[in-house]
Simulated assay, not measured.
Amino acid sequence: MPSPEFYEACDEAGLLVWQDLPLTGPVEYDPERGIEVGSALGEACESYPSVAAYGVHDDPRSPFDTPLGSGRVARTRVRWRAWRTSFDRTSADAVADGMETDRPVFPVSGPPGTAPDAAHLYPGWEYGTAGDIGWLTDTYPGIGDVVTEFGAGSLTDVDDSPGVHAAFEGLDGTPVETQREQGRTLKHVVEALRRDGTDLLAAFSLQDVRPGGGMGVVDAAGHEKASFDAIAAAYEPVQVVADEPPTGVPSV
């Protein structure tokens, strides 16, 4: 868990927190122990209004751990890997059912193929282009209802980069250009999901964890990347403008 000061700062700022249990990756665990840990976590977070939801098992399978490229062949590969992915969610459901909290609990968070309650979608990074977000939500109905991870990485230092990702192919490889591409990807995905009526949408992630680059829109030192403004603008509240005076009684 983060420190109490973190939750207090989120309470003050009005920032909602998605709190995961420490269950990530293809691991087996005792559901009774999971319920015990989950209940203790819920009790510790109960007094913080910023804690809005809990996740139990995160990324139980990783079918897209190697980039698949883009185009029709890549889409076929996405469907093939998702179809081959299997996961027994019995333990995750048992932990979720056993947690005593008045806040939503999502048993499984992960990519297509894991039957996630909260989806991790990475078009333009792990597979395809950002424009494939519509294809994903059409191919897997309901997968865009709750999205708790989406994003793209970028570089901040070529000499200390985390490696050249397939998504950077065709770019000049400079930090600024990769950050601009990151911003374009994030903006397109956010706006497409919002148009489709996604109920819950969280980008991954806010800040890089190490120098050289990462998935954040803020670098490891706390400076905004070139992609920051794009994602900030994409999350702005929607404003409706009437080009003529309204008539009748408006409905809410």
Rank of each mutant, 00 (worst) to 15 (best):
L16W: 08
E43H: 11
G142D: 02
V17R: 07
A44W: 10
P67K: 09
A94G: 01
T85M: 04
G163S: 12
R81T: 01
E100T: 09
D172Q: 06
A202N: 11
A166I: 00
A92L: 10
G134H: 09
E32K: 07
D208H: 12
H223D: 15
A167M: 06
D196V: 00
V218R: 06
M215R: 08
V238Y: 03
D58T: 09
E5T: 06
A192N: 03
P49T: 13
P2W: 14
V252T: 11
V51F: 12
A52K: 07
C10E: 07
G98S: 13
S205H: 14
R210H: 09
V241A: 11
R81F: 08
P67C: 12
T198W: 01
V209S: 13
G183R: 07
L200I: 10
T114P: 02
A52D: 07
T198K: 06
T85W: 00
A166L: 12
L201H: 04
A96C: 02
V209N: 11
L193E: 05
K225R: 14
T247V: 12
R75D: 02
R77K: 12
S161F: 00
V108S: 12
R89D: 15
E32N: 11
V146P: 04
D102Y: 00
D199A: 15
G183K: 07
G55W: 10
P123G: 08
D138L: 08
D159C: 05
A192F: 01
R184L: 10
G128E: 03
F228R: 09
R81K: 14
S50R: 04
A230I: 01
H57A: 10
R84N: 12
T148Y: 11
R61W: 05
G151W: 09
Q182M: 10
A167V: 04
D219A: 05
F168S: 06
G151K: 09
G212R: 11
V158Y: 15
P31T: 02
S161N: 15
F228Y: 14
I231K: 05
P237F: 12
R89V: 00
H223F: 04
V209G: 15
T198C: 15
E169G: 00
A233Y: 07
A74K: 13
A226T: 01
P111I: 00
R195P: 00
D159S: 14
L193T: 04
V164I: 15
G222H: 04
D172I: 01
E46S: 10
E43V: 05
G25L: 08
G98E: 12
D208T: 02
A242C: 03
P162T: 10
F168N: 01
G124H: 05
E46C: 03
P250L: 14
K187G: 00
A118E: 07
R184Y: 02
V56F: 05
